[in-house]
Design a protein around this nucleic acid. Sequence first.
DNA 1: CACGTTGGTGGGATCGGTTGCGGACATCGT
DNA 2: ACGATGTCCGCAACCGATCCCACCAACGTG
Lengths: 361, 361
Amino acid sequence: MAVTLKDVATAAGVSRSTASRALSGSGLISEETRSAVESAARRLGYRPNRAASALRSRQSRLIGLVMNNLINASFHTIADVVQRRASAEGYQVLLCITDADPDKERSVLRMLSEHNVDGVVIIGTGQNSDLRDDLMDAGTGVVNVIRGAEGGRAPSVLASDREGAHAATRHLLELGHTAIGYVGGLASANSGRERFAGYEQALRDHGLGVDPEMVERGPFSPAFGAEGTRALLDRRPDMTALFAANHEAVFGVLPTLVSRGVRLPEDLSLVCHEDISWLRSWQPSVTVVDNGAGELGRLCFDLLLRQMRESSELGQAPGRVYRVGAGLVERNSCAPPRTSPLLLPRTIPPRPEPTTVSPQG
Amino acid sequence: MAVTLKDVATAAGVSRSTASRALSGSGLISEETRSAVESAARRLGYRPNRAASALRSRQSRLIGLVMNNLINASFHTIADVVQRRASAEGYQVLLCITDADPDKERSVLRMLSEHNVDGVVIIGTGQNSDLRDDLMDAGTGVVNVIRGAEGGRAPSVLASDREGAHAATRHLLELGHTAIGYVGGLASANSGRERFAGYEQALRDHGLGVDPEMVERGPFSPAFGAEGTRALLDRRPDMTALFAANHEAVFGVLPTLVSRGVRLPEDLSLVCHEDISWLRSWQPSVTVVDNGAGELGRLCFDLLLRQMRESSELGQAPGRVYRVGAGLVERNSCAPPRTSPLLLPRTIPPRPEPTTVSPQG
DNA sequence: CACGTTGGTGGGATCGGTTGCGGACATCGT
DNA sequence: ACGATGTCCGCAACCGATCCCACCAACGTG
């Protein structure tokens, strides 16, 4: 049905092997036969059969991209970057979703190895490092991103959650804040643990300790962000700054602040972890910790590419860990602490009645 | 290196063909040999080579997912749904990004056909329907989603942009609003055109016309959302309701309203097109048009599956168009129009000085 | 002139499942 | 008893590109 390499070869008057060499650019080929083959291929509309190529050469030009979900902003930023880099290098991307379930991760990794992927980028569950090693033994490149897998030989590209949270908190401290609230994720998640540690460390470095009443930790959700913010405002009206440590919570934090009439930065200084686009267009624009999702994507694909090209034996060495630095993006949601107490809820005054209807007009 | 079907067959004491039939479940196989083969496969850790299978059977168990980008909320909702359905049916997803560039779309479709994909879901550029037809001729399933391709034989699954915008506008009209602002995308984009048409139609159905001063159309960006909102508030203080017709703009609209001190729904009623998660957790929660992204994803994958299973000849008939209805999700951002004029900017009153520092204590 | 060397090409095996065909054997109907 | 039908399995070809190896021509070189 489809036009095969054999057809191209016949049309160009050469053998299949020569045609193959001419098109793949490998091996010794005279300039004239190369162009003859190429023009024949073009003329016939030849499309190589990747399955056949993969079968024989054991190179599928496919890479697997395994992630917990596509909703998280950092995740789909990474997906976007990896996809682009991959296709620029002639690779296609197999997208897999695990919902952070180690069992799904196992079956996905199995599936990928059946498809003979040349490499895998994983935002993982932290488990199944045995399967990663199996893949590497089979010559497949493997790179963990965002979350490493303990004990495996695959390298990991991680964000600097602790450092980022530290920078955010330090920024607030340097502005003069000492009553700094924290709304963030539970310690059960890696990022939740690290970011809280950064917050804690910054306070300690400044000679302060963590006040448990200033901390709200819970599920990664807007609902919890709202709830935690309300709780903090109610419990500690002396709070002058707030660090929102995960972007799901931010969706709840910000509306709550608005509805309580809290003004940024006059009443409260706010720093959010993760640079989501609309925090830039917020009024005032919100100071954030940029965890470098784009750079994470670029770096992990580069590492993968290196593995795939060199197919170097990494021996039994444990996977190297790379850190992508986090940066504080200063915008307009932070200021020195207010000097007077915050009276809440502050409500917007009632609309003035139009003069024409005023009873005392 | 890897364990092949031949190894499994030898271990089970049968021929490769029998082993193949036993594992694939096709053909007549006695129960005992089947279980013998299966246990041998499990024992040896057999993993079928998809490339070999694809080569011979011409079924890759791969589908292509072609999209403009991954950032747009509807897009990655669709990506998420399609990926899940596909993997549940034993298909893997090749993710491709075109940036809405017809040339990139062409090369992506070529690439996919080289990979022998069994089907393709495309959020397309509206062009290259010739390539879609080529794919269908080769037995590949093709479904357009969100945006159809004119003149091709591939079916299209489209959102009801016009109907959704119509419902949103009608909702506001029925609440008694007549001064309804519109902030949305340019007519150069399909959705921008359709949604504006729905707005226009609803006004006409109500005996009203479009007041050009009530309309701001521009690029799909938060910046334009903010700018357009400011312009409307300044130009038409009599505006009592606002329809934000695309979700990129919403990121600018909402903060602008907040910073101007506009209260929802007392001062202004707001409806947004597209149900983004944080609009639900906003305070007050925002009434939205749900364009049914999840349902779009489900339907288009079902259609694709049907094409792939039946591999039916659709003849030369132009592709059928399916519409997924849009729904109005009523929440708390809408109310009957205020009766008095809106005085803006309304600023939050200055913080009261603490009594202890009051000079006139 | 005999003999390497280099550049270029063709033959044919090969990757690992799938599948059409036919053989072996059992069961059934008349 | 014998053909007919049906079940189960093996042989070998096959998908299409790649790649090892052999081969040939031309070109030095001693």
